[in-house]
Amino acid sequence: MRRSRFPFFVTMAVLFFFYLPIIILIVNSFNASRFESGWQGFSLMWYKRLFHEPEIWRAAKNSLLIAASATAVSLVIGTTAAIALHRFARSRLQRFHFGLVYTPLVVPEILMGISLLMLFVTAGVELGLFTIFLAHVTFCISFVAMTVLARLQDFDESIVEAAQDLGAGWWATTRRVLLPMLMPGLIAGGLLAFTLSIDDFVITFFVAGPGSTTLPIRVYSMIKYGSPPLINALSTLLLVLTFTAVAASQRLSRSRR
């Protein structure tokens, strides 16, 4: 049977569509021109300018701080959630629990942002880095739980049973058998939580207070009011960082296996 070429052409066209804006953005970050109107020669001036913007670096520091702490807390809560969902799968409590963990994944971000804002305003909590941290933990829990749960469902139940038969108690089984086997899931979940936290704009924007600017919030105000070439340079830099991080983590997980 001769196959249609049509799916191939659609795939190629869409890949072109995916890369076009990003490539133009990277090229423009080396453009000496101020106004995106044509090529005016190669230049690193925007990168140099970037280093003289203390606001950006302060925002980056806030983002890292929040991402690290939100990842740590959501990793613990998300993993216990996954273990509960897996161990006691058929119980009524866990059916409710699953719904509760799953729903934040499908709710549009703006709804989570506004509802948390309403909570903080009503409770009189001052908006700032701490409220951003609480919000980030909230949406990271679900992603961590789902990642770890997928890993749990994959592995061989009989190993746990063997440990118990050999006299290991619940705690010993969890710590000596379950956790080491879960490691790849924990690493994947942690990385996911970290990137989601670093990247989040909408929810953060709603629960941020004055003086608690994160990197995405800074980027947003640069897009709205700042100079485009600076954003090009910053984006290219972030892209390179993400690439390195992902490549490194993949190499790491491959050598572990």
Partner: peptide, 11 residues
């Protein structure tokens, strides 16, 4: 892998 805001900005 690029930030969501940056992709919109690129457009």
């Amino acid at each position: 892998w690029t930030n969501f805001l940056i992709r919109i900005f690129a457009w």
